[in-house]
């Protein structure tokens, strides 16, 4: 078992957003979490990543045998949790390669692996960048600064490629992408999909799932999973819209 979320209640500023959420992810599985805007998808992603503004009021989250909720965000990351942000943050003055090498080395150190110097890391980065067809000119640029929406999303997947997480949570990685960029990002994720990792695809739309075929689909509404099924559930949602789901949540 990679991730087990049980009866999770969480919120912000005293407002409950997740209201008893359950989710189990095993190694090698891809789970899609779908749901209307405001259903709590990003909240779930941020709670799993350890965002300090969100408060977990009850429930448990077990990751790789550990109590995830006890770990700081950076510890979670070094243990192998990765979240691709719906809105990636710009970090002025820090180059992409500098940032990624630091992150890579922190993880390497944690795993007792060899840390890389800038030259060695650059070789690794060049290889990884091919996965998302990213031009090496982006290595020198400040993290996400002045990147287009699509470039930011690609950069998130590049980070995933470098950090090789056990669990990747991709929050609306498809939003704001044109069809070519969507294909590139999706193919990148497919290349990173292995029998050893788990992926949670958070998305509003079904179209991403044409490219990354999920093993399970969970429909979130009102902070709870209201329906679960296989990949065909996504098509059903596409056809019927979310209204019936919202009704079900009430």
């Amino acid at each position: 078992m990679l991730l087990e979320v049980k009866d999770l209640h969480a919120g912000i500023d005293g407002k409950e957003i997740l209201k008893g959420l359950n989710l189990t992810v095993r190694k090698g599985e891809v789970h899609a979490i779908m749901g209307p805007n405001g259903s709590g998808k990003s909240t779930l992603s941020k709670v799993l990543a350890g965002h300090p503004s969100y408060e977990v009021t009850s429930g448990t989250v077990t990751f790789d045998g550990k109590n995830l909720l006890e770990l700081e965000p950076d510890e979670r990351a070094r243990e192998g949790v990765f979240m691709a942000f719906q809105y990636p943050v710009e970090v002025p003055g820090v180059s992409n390669s500098q940032f990624l090498r630091l992150a890579y080395n922190q993880k390497a150190k944690h795993n007792g692996e060899e840390e890389l110097d800038p030259l060695e890391f650059n070789d690794l980065l060049k290889e990884k960048a091919k996965i998302v067809e990213m031009d090496p000119q982006f290595f020198k640029r400040s993290v996400n600064e002045g990147f287009s929406g699509g470039e930011k999303k690609r950069n998130e997947i590049l980070q995933m490629a470098v950090l090789e997480p056990k669990l990747a949570i991709l929050d609306e990685t498809d939003s704001g992408l044109d069809i070519d960029a969507l294909r590139i990002v999706a193919e990148g994720v497919n290349k990173l999909r292995t029998s050893e990792n788990g992926i949670i695809l958070v998305t509003h739309y079904q179209r991403l799932l044409n490219y990354i075929v999920p093993d399970f689909v969970h429909v979130l509404a009102g902070g709870k999973v209201v329906k679960e099924g296989g990949k065909e559930l996504a098509l059903e949602l596409e056809e019927k819209g979310y209204d019936w789901v919202k009704a079900a949540a009430k």
Partner: peptide
């Protein structure tokens, strides 16, 4: 805070 959280989620310890 959001920039800091972003870096933390990439595994950088808080002081770094």
């Amino acid at each position: 805070e959001e920039e800091l959280f972003y870096l933390l989620t990439r595994g950088l310890p808080d002081p770094l």
